[in-house]
Amino acid sequence: MSSRPKRLLLGLGNDILTDDAVGLVAVRALRERFGDTVDMVEAGESGLSILDHIEGYDQVLILDAMQCGQVEVGTVMEVCMDDMGMPSAPSPHFTGMPEMWELGKRLKLKLPEELRILAMEVAKPFVFGESLSEETAPAMPAFIEAAANILQEWEERCHA
């Protein structure tokens, strides 16, 4: 078991901004199931701070809220790090992350070999509130499951 890669599940969001919290809510839901094999972190920062969180891990899965306005609320997307271009951001917490990723590579920091990002389209990320909106809440199980599938796949891969 000592050869298991170091894994991180990183939820990004603000837990007092209604739907902005979906990444955090998903991490909480997965804590029990994967907490033994994956480190779990909930964070509300952006850019360099995220680099601090992911440095030193082999595999990182980031969960975040987004509003691109082009898909239905509840749609889960996988954001492609390599294709994103430099100054792009699916959410304010992710602001500057692609740039930070390139910076990390350039400075030869120990970055994850595998970084995957799941983002869910949400309805209300700009209103203060401590629970998810009616529009967004029903989509949570699918978001959590999509994240669980990736964590499960990683676990199976290391047993294969």
Partner: peptide, 8 residues
Amino acid sequence: MPLVARVW
């Protein structure tokens, strides 16, 4: 916001 994303 700029984004390249896959839709699931």
